[in-house]
Lab assay of single mutants.
Amino acid sequence: SRHTFEINGERWTVEGVSEELKEILRAAERASNDEAERLLRLALKLI
């Protein structure tokens, strides 16, 4: 499935992501810059 999210003013669209990964991306959208970066690094390990 496709998911579009915005982090630090940048929009991203990813396809074929699991519900778990979507949850991480949604958390990154709400997080501070440092926390968002940490969550994105974690998410990339899952891809």
Rank of each mutant, 00 (worst) to 15 (best):
E6K: 04
A31R: 02
R38I: 10
N33K: 15
I7Q: 01
A27D: 06
E19W: 08
H3G: 06
A43H: 02
K45M: 13
K45Y: 14
V14L: 10
T4M: 07
F5W: 03
V17D: 06
R30W: 08
A28G: 02
K22N: 08
E29G: 06
V14H: 02
L40N: 01
S32V: 09
N8Y: 05
G9D: 03
E35L: 08
N8G: 05
R11A: 09
L40I: 07
L46R: 05
A43I: 11
H3R: 03
L40S: 01
R2Q: 13
W12T: 01
A27W: 10
L42A: 04
A36W: 06
I24P: 00
L39E: 00
N8P: 01
G16P: 05
A36I: 06
V17R: 02
S18N: 09
W12Y: 14
L42V: 05
L46W: 09
G9V: 02
E37A: 13
L21D: 00
L46C: 09
R26L: 14
R26G: 07
V17S: 05
E19F: 07
L46F: 08
K45A: 12
N33F: 15
A27V: 06
E15V: 14
A28N: 01
K22L: 15
L25H: 00
A36H: 03
A43T: 02
L44H: 05
L21C: 14
E29H: 06
I24W: 04
R26D: 06
E29V: 06
W12V: 09
E6C: 15
R26M: 13
E37Y: 13
R2L: 14
H3T: 08
G9Y: 03
H3N: 08
I7C: 11
W12A: 00
I7G: 00
L42F: 10
S1P: 12
I7Y: 04
T4N: 06
I47Y: 07
E23F: 10
A36V: 06
R11E: 10
I7W: 04
L40F: 08
L46Q: 06
E20F: 11
A28D: 00
E19H: 08
T4H: 11
E19N: 09
E20H: 09
R38Q: 08
S32G: 12
E20S: 08
T4P: 03
N33M: 13
R2C: 15
I24M: 09
A43N: 00
R38Y: 11
N33Q: 14
E19G: 07
D34C: 11
